[in-house]
């Protein structure tokens, strides 16, 4: 076990940005932390990186409870490095920026050079050693920040939205770097993203954050809606004031609706009749991830659907098809 969190909260003023009753993170794997802006991803990373103490609650790192007022915090931090979403480099050359982590760890001058060169190589920035850090572009700065973390050879690296400010080509590079350091150096990695695709492409496990709380990962189709009662007494949750999903709830007014992507079924287009929980839509995207296929069907709102590969083959599904989907009330959960 790498981290264990217990009853952790972080409160700014009167706003609770994090509220996590319990969470366990395992060693050696890549986690993705998924959530919209303001869901508390960065706050959680900063606490896990031991940069900011939680307001209440405790953290266990490597089987030891962390004491945030203690002096040993610096030693613990040397095993955990966080790469910021908007990294800053020190006013010095790239080489000196990379040297910093080694210098404060007391690595001798002779031993520093090969490590720095190796890490620069890894992020494809070997020609920039003598460049002034402040002359670099955003993408280059991001790479150097990653190299800066790597030279420290930590046990854990946190990446806060590592690809949010880089172009598509650099994005692939950075994803490969992350995958590479996890596999070759066995560094545990947690990265945040709001890109569902990236999360499932890169990580073994996904942690979903929503308004500071950890929500089960199945909550991928998340909408703001309003509960209405139909003529026959059944209840619907109206999303964007136009699409009603059947729900079983006692709640009224504005709610959050989550639809389990594994419980939505794609039906053949020629299924006759209309029913409240059957929608017409168009299949706009399909991707393969971890033995499953993720399909996105536009029914007025985009819906994520997860199904087996066989279902796709059997149903002769093709991107661009008009399809009908069934969204039974068991799939729809009001939060």
């Amino acid at each position: 076990m790498l981290f264990e969190l217990k009853d952790l909260t972080r409160i700014y003023g009167d706003r609770t940005v994090l509220d996590i009753p319990g969470l366990i993170l395992e060693k050696g794997i890549i986690y993705a932390m998924l959530g919209p802006n303001g869901s508390g991803k960065t706050s959680l990373l900063e606490i896990l990186a031991l940069l900011v103490p939680p307001t209440t609650g405790q953290i266990r790192y490597e089987n030891k409870w962390v004491n945030f007022s203690g002096n040993h915090l610096t030693l613990l931090r040397r095993e955990i490095v966080m790469v910021r979403q908007d990294p800053v480099l020190f006013t010095a050359t790239v080489y000196k920026n990379l040297e910093f982590g080694l210098k404060i760890r007391g690595v001798s001058r002779k031993e520093r050079d090969p490590v720095i060169c190796e890490c620069l190589d890894l992020v494809k920035m070997q020609d920039f050693a003598d460049a002034g850090a402040h002359t670099l572009s955003g993408g280059e700065t991001q790479r150097i920040a990653i190299a800066q973390a790597l030279v420290c050879s930590p046990r854990v690296i946190f990446f806060d939205e590592p690809t949010s400010s880089v172009d598509a080509e650099s994005q692939i590079d950075i994803e490969n770097i992350i995958r590479g350091i996890n596999e070759q150096k066995e560094i545990s990695i947690i990265f945040t993203t709001h890109d569902l695709m990236q999360a499932s492409r890169l990580s073994r496990r996904v942690i979903s954050l929503q308004e500071g709380r950890i929500v089960p990962q199945r909550f991928q189709n998340l909408f703001n809606g309003r509960i209405t009662t139909d003529g026959d007494g059944s209840r619907s949750c109206l999303v964007y004031d136009k699409i009603g999903f059947l729900v079983k709830t006692e709640k009224r007014g504005g709610v959050k609706l989550s639809i389990d992507p594994r419980k939505i079924v794609i039906l053949p287009d020629d299924v006759p009749g209309a029913h409240k929980n059957i929608f017409d839509g168009r299949l706009i995207q399909m991707t393969y991830e971890h033995d499953e296929v993720r399909a996105i069907v536009d029914i007025g709102v985009p819906l994520n659907i997860l199904m087996s590969k066989e279902k796709v083959t059997d149903g002769h599904l093709c991107v661009g098809d008009n399809v009908k989907i069934s969204c039974p009330s068991e799939a729809n959960e009001v939060l």
Partner: peptide, 12 residues
């Protein structure tokens, strides 16, 4: 960010 970067890189 300078302070936090130095800290996360292991500076006391």
């Amino acid at each position: 960010r300078y302070r936090k970067t130095a800290m996360t890189l292991g500076a006391g």
